[in-house]
């Protein structure tokens, strides 16, 4: 890997962080059966902030962001998204889900629908927008991710990178204020990783609030305002990317960084 050389010529994206709180998580705990996956998570994300979450596999990073839009249920503590607390109340869950977009490792596009239909489905059936308007938004978003020409193809006919960009466009069509990215490049070939990361950088520059679970350290350096390192269900260390990479404090962070950076 050549993270060093990549970041030098790319330069840092500008900081869009504001003072407004987008997500507030306090003392959040989660168990899978008797297994304690998330332990006392405290995290505050500001509007416009970009956070990269990293850590060894099984450390709970994916579970953490899946809790934010209730794909997983937490059992203790509170999660407040845009002032709405995530409870068992369906109304709150609906509200939060329509404000939070999520992109998955395996794209999870709907194989029976065309690219365009994938993008218009939720606006039409959840937001109740007209088909014309939904199509217009969808085409706009597909252009943003630079694949408008694939609009009438089925997901199965696209490459992995293209599929992942469609998945991003699909989330953007709901006009989310927060985007969650769950290892979105892990299932892609190297040459496709760049096209997806470029799309994400573009989003970052527009001031989107983002939480990314990723191992792309070059991306983290360039885009993140904050890097969080998780292990065994706990937030072990967090810092600005430049300090996090140059001067890790915790032993576990050091070990992890040496494993993924130093070959």
């Amino acid at each position: 890997m050549s993270e060093e050389s990549d970041t030098k010529d790319l330069g840092k994206t500008k900081d869009t962080t504001t003072d407004e709180v987008a997500i507030h998580i306090s003392n959040m705990n989660k168990w899978f059966g008797t297994f304690h996956v998330l332990r006392d998570i405290n995290l505050e994300v500001k509007r416009g902030e970009r956070i990269v979450v990293c850590g060894p596999s099984g450390s709970g990073k994916s579970t953490l962001i899946r809790c934010i839009n209730r794909l997983e249920e937490h059992q203790k503590g509170s999660i407040i998204v845009d002032g709405t607390e995530l409870t068992t109340d369906l109304k709150n869950i609906d509200k939060i889900r329509s404000e939070v977009g999520m992109v998955f490792q395996h794209f999870n596009l709907f194989p029976h629908l065309t690219t365009l239909e994938n993008c218009t489905l939720a606006p039409i059936w959840v937001r109740e927008t007209s088909e014309k308007e939904a199509r217009a938004i969808a085409m706009e978003m597909l252009e943003k991710v630079k694949i408008p020409e694939q609009a009438h193809k089925y997901p199965g006919q696209l490459s992995g990178g293209q599929q992942q960009r469609v998945a991003i466009a699909r989330s953007l069509c709901m006009k989310p204020r927060i985007m969650l990215f769950d290892e979105v490049t892990s299932a892609l070939d190297p040459e496709m990783i760049k096209e997806v990361l470029d799309t994400m950088i573009q989003l970052a520059e527009e001031g989107m609030t983002m939480i990314c679970v990723t191992h792309e350290m070059g991306f983290a350096r360039q885009v993140a305002n904050r890097v969080i390192f998780m292990d065994e269900g706990q937030i072990v260390e967090q810092n600005k990317p430049e300090k996090f990479f140059s001067n890790p404090k915790s032993d576990r962070t050091k070990l992890f960084l040496s494993q993924i950076l130093g070959h």
């Binding site: 794909l71 889900r97 329509s98 395996h106 029976h112 959840v126």
Partner: peptide, 24 residues
């Protein structure tokens, strides 16, 4: 993943069933 993707787009379970799961 299909259910999760639909849920993360804000769809309710009955819509997920009708629009995503059943057609497939």
């Amino acid at each position: 993943g299909q259910t999760e993707a639909a849920a993360s787009l804000g769809m309710r379970p009955n819509k997920i069933m009708n629009l995503i799961i059943l057609p497939q």
